[in-house]
Amino acid sequence: MADVVSAVHYLATRADQVALLDYLDEPRAVSLHRWPVLPSQSETLHRDDALITEQVMVVHRDLGTAMPNLPGHKAMEAANRSGLFNRLNWERLRPGPGESLVDSNASPVLLWTPGAVVGSAIYLSAIGSQADAMGAVSPEYETWVRRVMGWVRRRGTKVWGLERHGIRPDLDIRLAIVSNVYAMPGALAALEHGGYGTAQ
């Protein structure tokens, strides 16, 4: 799972993920795309394909689109942590002709990592922003990100965090992270009936 700078982590069934996409008003208000390589022509993912894609970019049409990041661009050449990771990602992913990387600090987009359900295993999901400072992208973007993460927290039930086993000792959660993790309604029911939460 990608390290999302500001995100909510959660466990979800397919029905829970569909409810999230409905809340986001996909496909009317938002579109889904692969992350982090931007093709020369925008490719939109159908939600069924997005649900089995490791990293998905969520674009809100009213807030703008993803900004490209290429060698020579300020974001790529920056002498900070962000610039270093941009250069490492460029070398690792090797985008083809006409392709670029997402400029996380200039793009009003969400990074969504939808976890799968395989048998009794419910894999960890996350949704949030990769921007170092969301407000620097735009105040409207920051509001949207916080609203989406808040929806997941309100709809979900906290099942993991700093207190770890003291939160829901009756549930089988196999995670090494200390971040709060929320189980969406379908996932919570599955956990209560013998399922277990785990990382990718």
Rank of each mutant, 00 (worst) to 15 (best):
Asp16Ser: 09
Met149Ile: 05
Leu175Gly: 01
Lys74His: 13
Ala121Asn: 02
Trp160Tyr: 04
Thr157Asp: 12
Pro114Gly: 04
Val5His: 09
Glu140Ala: 09
Thr44Leu: 11
Leu101Ala: 10
Val8Cys: 04
Trp112Lys: 07
Tyr141Ile: 01
Ser179Met: 07
Arg147Tyr: 04
Arg87Glu: 10
Gly96Lys: 14
Leu110Cys: 00
His9Met: 10
Ala133Val: 11
Leu188Pro: 00
Ser179Pro: 01
Met67His: 15
Arg154Val: 05
Pro36Arg: 13
Leu45Trp: 01
Tyr141Gly: 02
Glu77Gln: 13
Val117Gln: 11
Met76Leu: 15
Met67Trp: 15
Lys158Trp: 03
Ser120Pro: 05
Asp62His: 14
Val109His: 06
Val18Ala: 10
Thr143Glu: 12
Pro95Tyr: 08
Leu84Ala: 08
Arg28Leu: 14
Arg168Trp: 04
Pro139Val: 01
Arg168Gln: 07
Ala19Glu: 15
Leu84Val: 09
Pro71Trp: 15
Leu84Pro: 02
Trp112Phe: 15
Leu20Asp: 06
Val159Glu: 06
Leu38His: 05
Asn105Cys: 06
Met57Arg: 12
Asn105Glu: 12
His73Ala: 15
Arg154Leu: 14
Asp16Gly: 09
Ile167Asn: 04
Ala131Thr: 00
Pro27Ile: 12
Val178Arg: 06
Val152Asp: 08
Ala187Gly: 04
Pro114Ala: 07
Gln41Thr: 10
Tyr23Lys: 15
Leu111Trp: 08
Arg61Glu: 15
Ala78Lys: 14
His33Gln: 12
Leu11Tyr: 02
Asp49Ser: 08
